[in-house]
Each structure stands twice: as structure tokens, then as C-alpha cells.
């Protein structure tokens, strides 16, 4: 089984962001970076499939500047076999342009299964995986929280709001991974050493035309500081009054 996983390098979200003077990126000083949450789940799922089969190969692909090599090495350290950097130095926000470049790399790669995260936690476009699948002409099941790959069939559970769907297709196929299937393992020392020797190929990204152009980033208005209105059930009447008269939500 040949599997590809597309991973994106994103900043750690547990911080108070500042906007860079350009207004187009966050101020990266002091930020830590890693692969986007759902991409980590996808890498883990891919590695588990090859481990279970005792065969197969996982290729991780990331589009970005040279710093994505660090993210690719991390994926190699937790069990991916090969990595490809699609080099492009400037940030890109148009998911269609990214999908075009990813599809160009995946096309003809002979992959049985191509995996994406459900969403990149920085852009939150939630579309790159499905766009890429369509450009490749491959069937795709998005936002799945369960996956069975057997006898050339893919059976998945797709999460909806307060509901779910059971969905099937046949290989070769594309899936985008939601939470719930697997959490990424931590790299072992052995894994980190092995990752240094695994192949990492660098190619120029064949980006499509960018037609969804970032104009600016802004911090949303801060929430007013909260207030504690009381303790225990004695505070309930005051809460109900505020919900009615002040917040007008009751």
C-alpha cells in the first residue's frame, strides 16, 4: 500500500498572536511550529496502516519554505518513510492554488491512499484535501473519524453536526482526517535518528494562479473581562435576571 499524507507547518495556537508589520502574517518571533493537529492524526493513521500490513510506504508532502523540512523530519521520526518539500517561500492562502501544486506532485505517484487533515488550524479553509482529490479525479471522503481499508474498499464514518454518515468508496481514494481515529505518537530517540537518514526531496511548487488573496490579518475585538456574579445556587436568580435584561438571551 502506497500512502501519501499532505502536512502543513503551522504555529502552536496556545499563544496570544501578534500581527507582523506587513499585516499579512503573524509575528513569528518566539512561536513554536509543528504540523497542524489533523495532519498529525493523518500521519499516525497512515503509519498504523503500514505497520498492520507489515508492508507499504508512507510519503509525507509539505508545501512551503525550507522550514517545512523540520515538520517533514518530525513526520519521518514517527514512522513516515519518505518526504517531499514543494518549495515556495511566500505564504499562500488560496487553497485552490495549493491544491493545484499538491495534485501536480501526487499525479502519477501511484498512491493507493492520499490523506489530508480535515482542516489546517491556521487558514481553517477546510477545503484543500477535497479540491486536490477533484483535481486528481480521485474519489474522496472528507472529515472522517473512523477508517477501514480492506480488500480495496474504504469504509469511513464522517462526522456531521450532531450526526454522522457511513460512507464507502474503493481504492485508490483520498480521505481527510478528523479527530477520533488516532493521536500521533511522540518521536522516540531511535525514530529521530532514523529520520535523519530517510530521503527528503526538494522540488519547486507548481502553484496555480492565486485568486483568493489575503488582504490583511487583524486581531478580533477583545472580550470584556468576565465577572463572577455569585456562589452556588443562590446566584441563579441574578443570573436569570442578567440573561433576560442585560444580555437579552432569555
Amino acid at each position: 500500500m502506497k500512502i501519501a499524507v499532505c502536512i502543513k507547518r503551522v504555529p502552536d495556537m496556545d499563544v496570544r498572536f501578534k500581527i507582523a508589520p506587513s499585516g499579512l502574517t503573524v509575528d513569528e518571533s518566539g512561536l513554536k511550529f509543528d504540523m497542524s493537529d489533523f495532519d498529525g492524526y493523518a500521519v499516525e493513521v497512515a503509519v498504523q496502516i503500514t505497520e498492520k500490513l507489515g508492508a507499504g510506504e508512507v510519503t509525507v508532502i509539505s508545501l512551503g519554505a525550507d522550514n517545512v523540512q523540520e515538520t517533514l523530519r518530525k513526520a519521518l521520526s514517527i514512522g513516515a518513510h519518505k518526504a517531499v518539500q514543494l518549495k515556495h517561500d511566500a505564504p499562500v492562502s488560496d487553497g485552490y492554488a495549493i491544491a493545484t501544486a499538491l495534485a501536480a506532485e501526487l499525479q502519477g505517484g501511484g498512491y493507493d491512499l492520499v490523506m489530508f487533515g480535515r482542516m489546517a488550524v491556521d487558514t481553517q479553509n477546510r477545503s484543500t484535501g477535497v479540491l486536490t482529490a477533484e483535481l486528481l479525479g480521485m474519489p474522496v471522503i472528507s472529515a472522517i473519524s473512523k477508517l477501514d481499508v480492506e480488500n480495496g474498499m474504504v469504509k469511513a464514518r464522517r462526522e456531521l453536526e450532531g450526526a454522522f454518515e457511513l460512507v464507502e468508496t474503493s481504492l485508490p481514494a483520498v480521505v481527510t482526517i478528523d479527530e477520533g481515529i488516532a493521536r500521533p505518537r511522540y518521536p522516540s530517540l531511535k525514530g529521530i535518528m532514523a529520520a535523519k537518514k530517510k530521503p527528503l526531496e526538494v522540488k519547486p511548487a507548481q502553484l496555480g494562479e492565486q485568486r483568493y488573496v489575503l488582504e490583511k490579518l487583524e486581531l478580533p475585538a477583545e472580550r470584556a473581562a468576565g465577572r463572577i456574579i455569585g456562589e452556588g445556587k443562590d446566584a441563579v436568580p441574578e443570573l436569570v435576571r442578567l440573561l433576560k435584561e442585560e444580555a437579552k438571551v432569555l
Binding site: 487553497g95 492554488a97 481553517q124 479553509n125 477545503s127 477535497v130 474522496v140 464522517r158 485568486r211
Partner: peptide, 21 residues
């Protein structure tokens, strides 16, 4: 959940960019 799946498919078929969410 349906929209994110459906719209990306539609946009790709139309060869058009897509403003999500």
C-alpha cells in the same frame, strides 16, 4: 460538514477559487 465537502468539490469542478467559512 456537508457544505465543506460539497463546496470544495463544486469549486474544483468549476475551476474557481472558494471563500470558505
Amino acid at each position: 460538514a456537508q457544505g465543506h465537502d460539497q463546496v470544495a468539490r463544486t469549486a474544483a469542478k468549476c475551476k474557481l477559487p472558494y471563500a470558505s467559512d
